[in-house]
């Protein structure tokens, strides 16, 4: 047995012991069926619904011109993550009439503002990219009709 096999065996032993300890607690203290439904359900919904939806979004955005695609996908990624975390707030099922300090804000509006800011940042990044691209093209000394800049200038840079 070499050192790596030993570490491996130790990790499996420790890991399985921790899993066993956790499971014993679940069996003792938690309704196992309901717990298992959420445990497996989360994985199944994620793999079967959420990721395919993301893949579809990826395919759809694949039609967008390369120049905009990367920024747009980035903005979608950030906005989708923020929305996913904020959904329970927006739905507001946790509101209680006797505890007004619980979920006290207008979350639908706030989420719209945050997503709007993400969109604005994306537009700003795109604009900045476009300007630098145009400048670079202008600095290279030509429009569409002079695609290849003269070699002299290239050396001068």
């Amino acid at each position: 047995m070499n050192a790596r096999t030993l570490t491996h065996a130790a990790a499996y032993a420790g890991g399985l012991a921790l899993i066993g300890y956790g499971l014993s607690g679940i069996v003792a203290d938690v309704p196992v069926g309901r717990w298992a439904a959420w445990f497996a359900g989360a994985a199944v919904l994620h793999d079967g619904v959420l990721v395919p939806a993301v893949l579809v979004a990826g395919a759809v955005t694949g039609w967008i011109p390369v120049a905009y695609r990367r920024v747009l996908r980035g903005a979608l990624l950030v906005a989708a993550c923020v929305t996913a975390v904020a959904i329970p707030l927006v739905l507001g099922y946790g509101r209680r009439p006797d505890v007004p300090s619980q979920l006290p804000l207008p979350y639908g509006r706030n989420l719209a503002i945050v997503v709007g800011v993400i969109g604005a940042v994306a537009v700003a990044v795109l604009a900045a990219q476009m300007i630098t691209r145009r400048r670079r093209r202008d600095a290279a000394g030509g429009g569409a009709h002079r695609a290849v800049p003269p070699p002299k200038r290239e050396r001068g840079k």
Binding site: A11, G15, L18, G22, G25
Partner: peptide, 19 residues
């Protein structure tokens, strides 16, 4: 209780995954 006990399960599985 569910959050507490499940934490041990994922830390155990994580230890094996890391190895």
């Amino acid at each position: 209780t569910a959050h507490y006990w499940t934490a041990y399960i994922i830390i155990g599985a994580l230890l094996i995954h890391v190895a």
